[in-house]
Computed example of a mutant assay.
Amino acid sequence: MTNYIVRLLICGLAVMVIPNYLKDIYVDGLQTSIIVALAMSILNGFVKPVLNIIAIPITIMTLGLFSLVITVVMVYICDYLIAGFEVTGFLPPLIFSFILSIVNSLVGVFQKK
């Protein structure tokens, strides 16, 4: 549980920093960024697997590229659910999601040691 809280806080800080480099993403404050990190964690854990299963035929036909659309949809769902978090376009939420995934992976590597 402690590892999850540390990972959530570090990802929340990443969510706070990412909009400084991506112009189409806006986060209201630190509290909002931690809530966004929590919401992304829940969405990626429960909603994304269901969407991946539903979208298997489309993903196969597009040789896996449709999974990028599903990733962007997760960010837009988070945008819809959380006030103070705004996203526009297609490429900025995709880059946002990739950066958040990299940060989450790095935190996981350092927590295992």
Rank of each mutant, 00 (worst) to 15 (best):
M1V: 09
T2F: 14
Y4K: 14
V6S: 09
V6H: 09
V6R: 13
R7I: 10
R7C: 15
I10Q: 07
L13R: 05
A14K: 02
V15C: 04
V15F: 01
P19I: 05
N20I: 14
L22Q: 00
K23L: 06
K23W: 04
D24I: 03
I25F: 05
D28H: 08
D28S: 11
Q31I: 15
T32K: 07
T32M: 09
S33Y: 03
I34D: 13
I35V: 14
A39H: 11
M40F: 13
I42F: 15
L43S: 12
L43I: 15
N44H: 10
V47T: 08
L51M: 04
I54P: 02
A55I: 03
T62V: 08
G64C: 07
L68F: 06
L68R: 01
V69L: 08
V69N: 00
I70T: 00
T71C: 01
V72P: 04
V72I: 04
V72F: 03
Y76N: 03
I77C: 12
Y80R: 09
Y80F: 14
G84R: 07
F85H: 05
E86F: 07
T88R: 07
G89K: 08
L91N: 08
P92V: 00
F98K: 03
F98S: 00
F98L: 11
L100R: 05
L100M: 10
S101F: 06
S101H: 05
V103C: 03
N104Y: 00
N104A: 12
S105N: 08
S105L: 07
V107C: 15
V107E: 11
G108H: 12
F110K: 14
F110S: 13
F110G: 11
Q111G: 14
K112N: 15
K112F: 15
